[in-house]
Design a protein around this nucleic acid. Structure first.
Length: 130
RNA sequence: CGUUUACAGUGGAUGAUCGUCCCUGACCUAGUCAGGGGAGGAAAGUCCGAACACUUUCUUUGAAAAAAGAAAAAAGGCAGUGGGUAACACCCACCGGUUUGGCGGCAACGUCAAACAAGGGAAAGCGGCACAGAGACAAUACUAUCCCAGAGCAAUUUGGGAGAAAGGUGAAAAGAAUAUGGAAGUUCUGACUCUAGAACAGAGCUACCAUAUACCGACCGUUGUGAGACGGUCUGGUGCCAAGCCCUGCCUGGGUGCAAGAGCAGCCUAUGAGAGAGACAUAGGAAAAGUUCGCUCGCUUGAUUUUGGCAGUAAUGCCAAAACUAGAUAAAUGAUCGUCACGUCUUGCUAAACACAAGACGUACAGAAUUCGGCUUAUAACUGUAAACUCAUC
RNA sequence: GGAGAGGUGUCUGAGUGGUCGAAAGUGCCGCUCUCGAAAAGCGGUAGGUCAGCGAUGGCCUCGUGGGUUCGACUCCCACCCUCUCCG
């Protein structure tokens, strides 16, 4: 299920994924993935390693460049999040990853069905889907 | 009847499945379940005004902690009057002005209605008024005019002088408003065959004087809370620009803005990594302090909302009763699929239209971030008011 | 969320309310120099729209729209866009 624990919030985590993650680019979305099992040396020292490895955290970024209107940006974020939620509900995604979605300006003209397709395609290419 | 524009108001309803934030409750408590609540008129721009918080300097009180009060100058803002307000550059009412329209009038103008953010002072001083033009403010003679002297047969021309009444230039042209009467002086005519011609008469022009008017100023009277209105007096004044400096009156005026600020919690130092940070990595030391991306508070009960009554032309105020109506923080209030409603288009029915039926498309602007009061800007569709236009009928 | 700065030819960037469509550089075009090029020197050159065969001329435009003024890139008001800071 998609809970608040799955939010990527800490600046440390963002630095980690931006520094060591791998890019996957789509037509109107980009995805950056960090496989936690391969990056144990960067973990915070206080954390429980086994528990840390089983995390699944994601962030969605829709910048001002997409649109200056908050309504459009928020709608894009909600639609992407809804796709992820539905995938997680059917338990279709692996654990132990940090995911970071970045929207491109073209996203504002897309329908929900197109966004859904794009997100699934990117996840498949990143080999995160079960 | 319709269309367009401006202003004001409203700002689609409902069902299913899967979710999200807050509050309350229950339980077998890393959670699960149930119930309740969850964007706006602009939440926007951040253009004004406040509340609130911390803080600077000074004063007073105090043993201290702290509390209360003040903050000049610089600078900035507002400009008709009265009222409203916590406050405002906002709102209400009125005064004056301008514009448009109707009516009356030859006209000037009067009166009625509507609209208007840009409504103190040019009579304190400084500055500006390009180009053109003679001259743009203790100014000035280019053309034309008049007088004197000289040249020439003459037309004309050279020099000196007079006058601001003509022309032309310009946005604006001179006591920078206007009219009437008189007028020193000057010119012309009476004036003759030619030249001169005192006095007198008539006519033209002007300095200047007088009177009246317009606006302004000062003063007086009546009236209105007041801006003003009406009337009167005078050794009074008269270009434009203050969204140029400025003057006058009033207001603000130490600073920073909820990333204000308070508490809790977390040890410190060095090196490395890095855009950068003491927080990430590595190593060392040791209980005090600094600082901070964590957590909690600030954070929603308030210049609040609704209803009723009273006061007031109104803005608004007072009284009473009832209500609690988002508090997120990589940031909730949603996604998908239906049904209905409204609008537009197409098709069918029809001679055509209405109505009806079916289908397609559309349903705006836009998302709380400390909280209020305004202003400004955006806005589908519907409703109302006003104006303009088109068509039809009388 | 809060606090500020700016917008002028293709680009960079000056510009007291007045002869300003606007200095200068850059870019582009032409000429000189050269066997040819570069460098250097000289000259020209913004856009839109309308009229005209053309040469050329009219009108509009300094982010946009109003206002003040005889006159606005400049002064005042509103809006749009870009950038910076609050680590």
């Amino acid at each position: 299920m998609y809970k608040k624990d799955n939010h990527l919030t800490k600046v440390r985590d963002f630095n980690l994924i931006l520094k060591h993650g791998i890019w996957y680019n789509g037509r109107f979305l980009s995805l950056r993935v960090l496989e936690l099992a391969k990056n144990e040396q960067y973990f915070p020292p206080t954390a429980d390693v086994d528990k840390f490895k089983k995390q699944l955290k994601l962030a969605i970024n829709v910048g001002l460049k997409v649109s200056k209107k908050a309504v459009i940006r928020n709608r894009a974020k909600r639609q992407i999040r809804e796709v992820i939620r539905l995938i997680m509900q059917t338990d279709g995604i692996k654990e132990g990853y940090y995911l970071f979605f970045v929207a491109k300006p073209e996203v504002k003209e897309k329908e929900y069905a197109e966004i859904s397709e794009e997100v699934k395609l990117l996840l498949q290419r990143a080999k995160v889907l079960k």
